[in-house]
């Protein structure tokens, strides 16, 4: 690839990455990733942008970031960020967020809440994954707990501050238990309702989905996973897709980032005036997890 110019990440028509607060509008954003092209570099950029309004992916801000030796103070963060993870613990996220403008997140950080739905998922919360009777109640309880913790954490939040909620891999609940997509989507709506903007990060394995299937059983894992993903795209305002190059592995390009309008993108445009500007970036991630964006 010849000297391709480094690009800045911009999603909406006003150039921003995360939309501003709008009391009449709560957005649902879907982030999909595949094996080989993990989402961590993108999700941490979104978190950084939510908290600090900066973006380490962009060429200019990374220089100012490195000039700061001490960790960034989250007292005056631009949003309250909640990360709910079904696949990783806080140690994973605080290590990765350190690369983003030296963000220092701990259990006691202001404006940042981590809800661990991973470590004790099956030892405490979902003790009966196979039971159809208990699963809905257990999932209900799990999410009620999550919601309660979020509400408590933002009790002192000023009204003008956005609440950004990022949920990592909740589709795993559908795969690992007898939970159905509709039941999980209920919980997604509930989370979207309490947040300003909800980001759902989920894996998309092209071999394990089938849109034209006619499943013989409601418990068929391919059917359930596809059901969830398709319905999510219909109700999303924005879809960010991280996927490998069609040609496979390359030394100078890790993968492709696609910015796609979701099924309800028109709703966002009509209510907030913000439009998703569709585009495709190429990106490169180095061994430390730092990423750069390019155009084709």
């Amino acid at each position: 690839m010849s000297a391709s110019q480094r690009q800045d990440l911009a999603i909406y028509s006003n150039g921003c990455i995360i939309p501003p607060l709008n009391p009449a509008f709560k957005s649902l954003n879907l982030v999909t990733y595949q094996q080989g092209t993990h989402h961590t570099w993108l999700t941490q950029a979104l978190l950084e942008n939510a908290l600090l309004d900066t973006c380490s992916l962009n060429s200019d801000s990374s220089q100012t970031a490195r000039s700061l030796n001490n960790s960034r103070n989250l007292e005056d963060a631009k949003a309250h960020v909640v990360v709910v993870s079904f696949m990783n613990d806080l140690a994973h996220w605080s290590k990765n967020l350190k690369k983003c403008n030296n963000l220092d997140v701990t259990p006691s950080s202001p404006n940042f809440t981590f809800l661990d739905c991973f470590t004790n998922l099956f030892s405490k919360f979902i003790t009966a994954p196979t039971s159809a009777q208990s699963i809905e109640a257990q999932v209900q309880e799990l999410f009620a707990d999550v919601t309660q913790k979020i509400v408590t954490a933002v009790r002192a939040k000023p009204a003008h501050q956005r609440l950004i909620v990022v949920v990592e891999n909740l589709e795993f609940l559908i795969a690992a238990t007898c939970l159905r997509a509709n039941q999980l989507l209920c919980q997604v709506s509930a989370l979207q309702n309490i947040a300003s903007h909800l980001y759902v990060v989920t894996q998309l394995a092209p071999e394990a989905i089938d849109v034209s299937t006619v499943a013989s059983s409601a418990h068929n894992p391919v059917y359930k996973a596809t059901d969830f993903l398709v319905k999510m795209i219909y109700r999303a305002h924005l879809v960010l897709q991280v996927q490998p190059l069609a040609t496979g592995r390359a030394d100078d390009v890790t993968g492709v980032l696609r910015i796609v309008r979701g099924g309800l993108s028109e709703e966002m445009r009509l209510v907030t005036g913000l439009n998703v500007v569709e585009k495709e970036y190429l990106y490169l991630v180095n061994k430390d997890g730092n990423a750069k964006l390019f155009f084709r």
Partner: peptide, 8 residues
């Protein structure tokens, strides 16, 4: 891989 590097 979980940092985002394409290792396939």
């Amino acid at each position: 891989s979980e940092r985002g590097v394409m290792d396939i």
